Amino acid sequence: MEEHIFNIEGLTHQFADGTFAIKNLSLTVQQGKKIALLGNNGAGKSTLFLHLNGLLQPTSGTIRYKGKKIKYDRKALLSLRKQVGIVFQDPDSQLFSANVQQDISFGPMNLGWERNVVHEKVQWAMAQTEVTELKDRPTHFLSLGQKKRVAIAGVLAMEPDVWLLDEPTSGLDPYFSRQIMSLLDSIHHPDKTIILSTHDVNLAYQWADEVVVMNDGKVIYQGDPVSVFHDEDVLMRAHLEKPWVFEMFQALLKSRIPSEKDLVPRTKEELLQKMERERIY
């Protein structure tokens, strides 16, 4: 039986100005999944992340983490944030130490690890995100892409059970976007759950085990990353386009009668292999 890492029931969040960012949202998240959270601007994706990490409290509704209702006292929140790491869309919201190495060290040091363990984890995280050469540089002198990688390294060094990443590849060039996604694949295993929000449908389609689509503070789809792009109503409501691999394959299928063996390719390599194998061109 698959364990639910999060159980969210009737979650509503109203800001002080009266705006509802999340409206009676219910969602279950299975442990070990790679989940892409899609939706238009203002759908409530970032607000949902802030609730999962305990940075915001619900106006109403409940959130359970590993079966236990989230509490908001200092001890409970410290325990939650050891296990649920968050990388903000804007890295300036996350970086505050004098230099890169100090910033990445902050989280592990607050976990109470021995100094040598902290040093080892920080060096590893810097190497994985290719920021070692920046270790002594003041964080405010970094480019946006460098700041994003340092913010990711800071969470990576803490080794949380759950990763929440808000637009992790925005502001990164194609090389570092691929590098970050490869890193997420390398740390993922059945005990690690990764949820990332993105506007990049191609990334979500290729990478995710499951897609969650939000619109107007509600979940309007949860399921596999292929079926969602057959649902024109969901795509229209969430202002989503179809991934180019998906569209290309659909166009190529028009040249022949589809068969039950037609598994939809999700990467460029899978599409090219299928075209070569079946002579679809």
Rank of each mutant, 00 (worst) to 15 (best):
L77K: 12
K82A: 08
M275K: 02
F176G: 05
F88Q: 10
A157E: 01
N40M: 06
F6Q: 05
P138F: 00
H189E: 11
V264W: 12
A127V: 11
G145F: 00
E278V: 00
P190T: 09
G67H: 08
P243Y: 06
L142R: 04
G61D: 04
V131Q: 02
L156K: 06
L196S: 02
D103I: 03
L77F: 07
E232D: 11
Q14A: 06
A153D: 04
V155Q: 05
R178M: 00
H13P: 02
W163S: 00
V122D: 03
F246P: 08
S182F: 00
I70A: 10
F229E: 05
D200Q: 07
V212Q: 11
T139Q: 02
F249I: 02
G54R: 10
N202G: 06
L38T: 02
P160C: 11
H140M: 02
Q94T: 00
K34N: 07
V234L: 03
G10V: 06
L252R: 01
E260W: 07
K75G: 05
V118I: 10
K192E: 01
W113P: 01
L77E: 06
V201C: 09
V212Y: 10
Y221V: 07
A157H: 06
K45W: 11
V87K: 02
I22E: 01
L52S: 04
V150R: 05
D173Y: 00
D216N: 12
G42H: 07
F249S: 02
S97K: 10
H4K: 14
F106W: 02
K71I: 04
G39L: 08
L80Q: 11
S105G: 01
F6S: 02
Q89P: 07
F249Q: 03
L183G: 03
T12W: 11
S79R: 14
K135M: 14
F96H: 04
G42I: 14
S97D: 08
K33G: 00
V117C: 04
V84T: 05
I70M: 12
S227I: 03
D90L: 13
A43W: 12
Y281N: 09
E130K: 15
T59I: 09
V162K: 07
D73Y: 12
K33I: 01
G171K: 00
H119T: 11
L263K: 13
L203N: 01
D216Q: 14
R149V: 05
Q102Y: 01
P160H: 13
E276Y: 15
N215D: 15
K71A: 14
D17G: 09
D200I: 07
D233I: 08
P225F: 07
G42C: 13
V117F: 11
L50Y: 10
E2I: 13
H13C: 03
N99V: 03
Y281P: 09
R277I: 06
L172Q: 01
K218Q: 14
H199P: 08
L77W: 08
